[in-house]
Design a protein around this nucleic acid. Structure first.
Length: 531
RNA sequence: CGCGGGGUAGAGCAGUUGGCAGCUCAUCAGGCUCAUAACCUGAAGGUCGUAGGUUCAAGUCCUUCCCCCGCAACCA
C-alpha cells in the first residue's frame, strides 16, 4: 500500500485578492503531510501555485489601473511571502501565466480537439452588458440582477468550446468503483454522484470570448481557455508533461511506484473528482491515487469570504504568535475532512492548553530538574527502574505507532492528538514519580531514570510534532542538548536513545497567552472589535 | 419534495461494525512545588433536536417533523 514516492499538491489559488487563513489552512495541511513523508525517508514532491487567468482578474486589474500581469505579479508576490512566512516546504510553485504552462495547455487543447473530445458550441447565460460578464441562474437570482453592478441582465449566448463529458462518464464511474479510496471522505463521492452525475452531467464549457485574459486557443484565437482546463492541468505541466524536460513527470506521474495525492477544498471537489480524471483519460494519462477533500474553515458567524471582508489575515497572526502557533492551530483545531470555524477564543485556548501548558511547560520543568539534580547532564538510560517507567515507555512506543498509522491515512488531526496524549502522560508521570521526593530521599538511581525517561518522552513527542512545529521542535532538541546530527527519526523507535547530553535552558517555547488581551487583539484583526 | 452537512454537559467538539455516554476549555473541591497563575487527582454538569419504530440492548439502524448551515458552473 505504501509507495516509494509521493507527489502531493494544493490547489492553485486565485490571485484576485490577498490570501486569507483558509488558504493557509489548506497549504499548511499539505505541508505537514509532505514534511512527514520526507521525515520518514520517502521522496516527496510538493507543488503549489497560482491560477492567474480569468475575467475577474482582468477587471480587478483594470480598476486598479494595472495590466493583468502586473496585478497578479504583485498579488502572487504576497503568496510567496506567506508561504515563506509559514515555512511551507513546497518544491515548486507554478503560475498559469508561465510559458511552461501556457504552451502545454494549448497543446492539450489541440489534442482534445483533434480527438473529438472538445467541440465548438454555444454558451448560454445571463449577460450583463456594462460588466461584459456572464452569470449563472443562481448568481442573478429570481430578479435577474447582475450580482456585480446590480443592473438587470439579459439571456445571451456566445460561441464556446465544450468538453464532451459523455465520452468518459462510464469510465469515471468504473474508476470510482475500482478505487474506493480515491475520494476521501467517502461522502464526497456520493455527493458527486447524486448532485452532478445522476441529474445528467452537462458538457464542460472550456473557452470564452467575452474576455481576453487567458490562454488563447491556437485554432481560434478569439477564444481563451476557460478555467478548469487551464487550472487543473497545472498538476502535470509543473512536472514537465509534454515538454523538453519530462524527467519529473516520468518520476512522479508515470511511475506507478509514486502515489499522487491532491489536497483540495470542498468547494472545488467537483472539478477535481469529475472533470480532472476525464481530462487525464482523454490524454491517456494515469489518474491520481487520492484526492483528499478538507473542510472549509468558517469564521465564527459566517463563511469567510473575500467579498464579505470578514477574513483573517495570517500575517499579523504569525507575527504575534509565531509560525508554529498558527500551523498547530490549523492542523489540530479542525478535524481534517469536516468544516471548522475560526474563533479568537479557540485560537488562544488551543495554544495555551496544548503548547504552553502541556508541551512547553513539560520541557521547561524537565530541563530545570535535570539542571538542578544532575548539573544539566541527562542521565543515561538504564532500562525501567521505577514502578512507573515501563508505563511511560510503552506509552511513547504506542504513540509512535498510532501517529504513523493516522498520518499515513492523512488523519493529521488524530495523529497530533496522539502526541498530545503522550505529553499529558509525561506530565502525569512527574506527579507519579515525584522527583523532588526522590531527590530529598537520596534515591539517585530512580531520580536518574525518571529524568532519562522524561527526556526520551520529550524527544519522541518533539520529533513527532516536528512536521507541524517546524521551529519549536528543533528548539526543544537544542534544549535537550541533542546534536543536530543526532535527531533522526529512527530514534523514536528506540526509547532510551537519548541520554548523556547536556541540557541548555532556553526561552519558553510557547509563553502563556493572556486570553482577554489576545482575544481582543485578534478580534481587531478580524474587524470585529467591539465599539 | 434540488443536493449535502449538522443539532451530544455552560462553550467547542469526539463518538469505527448498535453493548455502562466521552474529550478539551470553563466551574467547584483537593494535592503538589520541578515548571509557564503551570501540573496532577476528584466532583458537579447531558432524558444525545422532536415524535414514533426495529431490538434483549439505539447517540448509533428505519420513519415523521422542527431548527441551523453550506453548495447549486471561479471564494481553499
Amino acid at each position: 500500500m505504501i509507495k516509494k514516492r509521493f507527489y502531493i499538491t494544493t490547489p492553485i489559488y486565485y490571485p484576485s485578492a490577498k490570501l486569507h487563513i483558509g488558504h493557509a489552512y489548506c497549504t499548511t495541511l499539505t505541508d505537514v503531510f509532505a514534511r512527514y513523508k520526507r521525515m520518514r525517508g520517502f521522496e516527496c514532491y510538493f507543488l503549489t501555485g497560482a491560477d492567474e487567468h480569468g475575467q475577474k482578474i482582468e477587471k480587478n486589474a483594470a480598476s486598479a489601473g494595472k495590466t493583468p500581469q502586473q496585478f497578479v505579479d504583485e498579488i502572487v508576490d504576497g503568496f510567496y511571502k506567506l508561504w515563506e512566512l509559514l515555512d511551507i516546504s513546497n518544491d515548486d510553485f507554478i503560475r498559469t501565466t508561465q510559458d511552461r504552462h501556457v504552451k502545454v495547455v494549448q497543446d492539450i487543447f489541440s489534442k482534445m480537439l483533434e480527438k473529438g473530445d472538445i467541440y465548438l458550441g454555444k454558451y448560454e447565460g445571463w449577460y450583463c452588458t456594462p460588466c461584459e460578464a456572464f452569470w449563472t441562474d443562481t448568481q442573478v437570482g429570481p430578479d435577474h440582477i447582475c450580482p456585480d453592478c446590480g443592473r438587470p441582465v439579459q439571456m445571451a449566448e456566445e460561441e464556446a468550446y465544450f468538453f464532451k463529458t459523455g465520452n468518459y462518464l462510464d469510465s469515471l464511474l468504473k474508476f470510482y468503483d475500482d478505487n474506493p479510496k480515491f475520494l476521501v471522505p467517502e461522502s464526497r463521492k456520493n455527493e458527486m454522484i447524486n448532485t452532478f452525475i445522476k441529474p445528467g452531467l452537462d458538457d464542460l464549457c472550456v473557452s470564452r470570448t467575452s474576455f481576453s485574459w487567458g490562454i488563447p486557443i491556437r485554432e481560434n484565437p478569439k477564444h481563451v481557455i476557460y478555467v478548469w482546463l487551464d487550472a487543473l492541468t497545472n498538476y502535470i505541466t509543473a512536472l514537465g508533461y509534454d515538454s523538453d524536460h519530462p524527467e519529473l513527470f516520468k518520476k512522479y506521474w508515470e511511475d506507478p511506484e509514486c502515489e499522487i495525492i491532491h489536497i483540495l477544498g470542498a468547494d472545488i471537489t467537483r472539478f477535481h473528482a469529475i472533470y480532472w480524471p476525464m481530462f487525464l483519460e482523454s490524454l491517456g494519462l494515469r489518474k491520481p491515487d487520492r484526492e483528499f477533500v478538507h473542510g472549509l474553515l468558517m469564521m465564527k458567524d459566517s463563511k469567510m469570504s473575500k467579498s464579505k471582508g470578514n477574513v483573517v489575515d495570517p500575517f499579523p497572526l504569525v507575527e504575534r504568535y509565531g509560525v508554529d502557533a498558527l500551523r498547530y492551530y490549523l492542523t489540530r483545531e479542525v478535524t481534517f475532512g469536516s468544516d471548522g470555524s475560526f474563533s479568537p477564543e479557540q485560537f488562544v485556548e488551543r495554544i495555551n492548553a496544548d503548547l504552553a501548558n502541556s508541551f512547553g511547560n513539560l520541557l521547561n520543568r524537565t530541563v530545570s530538574m535535570i539542571n538542578k539534580y544532575f548539573d544539566g547532564v541527562i542521565p543515561e538510560y538504564k532500562g525501567d527502574v521505577t514502578a512507573f517507567d515501563g508505563a511511560l515507555r510503552t506509552a511513547a512506543e504506542s504513540t509512535v505507532r498510532l501517529y504513523e498509522s493516522n498520518l499515513d491515512d492523512l488523519k493529521i488531526t488524530e495523529a497530533i492528538a496522539a502526541v498530545n496524549d503522550l505529553v499529558s502522560r509525561a506530565n502525569k508521570y512527574i506527579d507519579e514519580t515525584t522527583p523532588w521526593v526522590l531527590a530529598k530521599e537520596g534515591k539517585i538511581e530512580e531520580l536518574a531514570s525518571v529524568m532519562n525517561h522524561l527526556a526520551n518522552a520529550i524527544f519522541v513527542a518533539a520529533k513527532l510534532y516536528e512536521p507541524v512545529l517546524v521551529k519549536s521542535s528543533p528548539k526543544a532538541f537544542d534544549q535537550l542538548g541533542i546534536d543536530e546530527n543526532d535527531r533522526d527519526y529512527e530514534k523514536v523507535y528506540k526509547f532510551g536513545s537519548i541520554g548523556g547530553t547536556k541540557v541548555v535552558k532556553g526561552d519558553q517555547l510557547f509563553p502563556r497567552l493572556d486570553a482577554a488581551i489576545e482575544v481582543e487583539y485578534i478580534q481587531g484583526l478580524m474587524g470585529l472589535r467591539k465599539e
